[in-house]
Design a protein around this nucleic acid. Structure first.
Lengths: 208, 208
DNA sequence: CAAAAAACTATCTACTTGGGGAGCTATCCC
DNA sequence: GGGATAGCTCCCCAAGTAGATAGTTTTTTG
């Protein structure tokens, strides 16, 4: 039996979520809050293991609330439940420490499924969110037509620039003179249409 | 009725997937291949709408195969089915254009669910994969304890550095002298423990 | 109120970087 | 053979950058 809390300012949505949570024998809703401030005050006492958090809250956003809540209850897991689907907000929420991201129009089954996944140590995203996240990764290749003009050697040099190395460090690594490195860099800048190593690094920005 | 193809070198897994696909009334397996080369030759004729692709294949990896297949069949969607769970491979697959990522130990229900999500235009990830992807985003904050030592102004300067601006451009933007910008940069380098603007930019690397 | 932190200015030096040109090898392909 | 491309070396010069030191003003905070 997992203890669940809900933070959501809209009364109807809040009660709807509470009903959904209590539908399952595996979860029990131990408390609901309408604001982030209230959540930070009462949730540490209720000690929920899982929090369903709205993003759009009166003063403090749900994203910030999750970040602070994580400090007070390190083990707590959060699923954002929101109407927003813009990638920016999704990524900010995930960075704040959310374990899942659902849209408000999700079905009760999806909500319960997400809670189960998260409780088992997984992550949870609705299909639409997953598509956006996947699309985010895909962007990184499509935006790089300029990059495939680079020769293998130039790519090699750029790779090292992206790791923060100076020309001197790069030439040592490649066993050539600094002149060679600068020669390649010159061409890299031309092909990428930039004028500094920092711009080039940010434009290339490979895997990680 | 969606036409599905399977690319997988292991006979048992391949036939297992074929059985799963044909379990559903919404999908039909129109062909199976054991190698990437075979897939690139026969799939353009079979014109599947969805491909279940293994990553570990004899000569060419499934990731490269998806990338090439996308050129021949622009509309095709791919779901990677693999035993690998290292983030690197996941991200490379997603960048290659995969719409989903499943682990081989997924249940038949999960496989069918993922196919439905993808066919409906969404993305699909098993809970474990979602956790890794989410974790990837989370890293970016946890690794940045150093960043929150920065003052608001320093953060402002760094933000502009990350956009590829030179000191001169930054000082104009902020209506201060170059000296001020350099003053802040010095402190930024100290706090981030780096020695160049490129390193600082790569370390900071905000949302996007 | 006093101490601390943040923001800004200035000056100095040494080094790195960006942009240009010139010339030398390989290799690949028609 | 001749042209194209990639990789390397060396030169120059102007500009930008990093590091250190030293000072002012304003705001925050105990």
């Amino acid at each position: 039996m997992t203890k669940v809390a809900i933070v959501e300012d809209n009364k109807t949505t809040r009660e709807g979520l509470e009903t959904i949570v209590n539908l399952s024998a595996d979860f029990r809703c131990v408390g609901t809050c309408a604001t982030a401030e209230e959540a930070l005050k009462v949730l540490p006492k209720l000690e929920p293991e899982l929090v369903l958090m709205d993003i759009q809250l009166p003063n403090m956003s749900g994203v910030d609330c999750v970040a602070r809540l994580k400090e007070l209850l390190p083990g707590v897991k959060a699923i954002m439940v929101t109407v927003y689907e813009d990638p920016d907000r999704i990524f900010r929420a995930l960075r704040a420490g959310a374990s899942g991201y659902l849209l408000k129009r999700s079905t009760p089954e999806e909500v319960l499924h997400a809670m189960s996944e998260v409780q088992l140590g997984g992550g949870a995203m609705s299909g639409e969110i997953a598509r956006k996240v996947i699309g985010y990764f895909r962007e990184q290749t499509t935006a790089s037509t300029e990059v495939d003009e680079l020769t293998p050697r130039e790519r090699e040099v750029l790779e090292l620039v992206v790791h923060g190395l100076s020309n001197k460090e790069i030439c040592e690594r490649l066993s050539v003179t600094v002149a060679a490195v600068r020669f390649h860099l010159k061409h890299i800048y031309q092909k990428l249409h930039v004028h500094s190593r920092t711009e080039a690094a940010l434009k290339f920005r490979p895997a990680k």
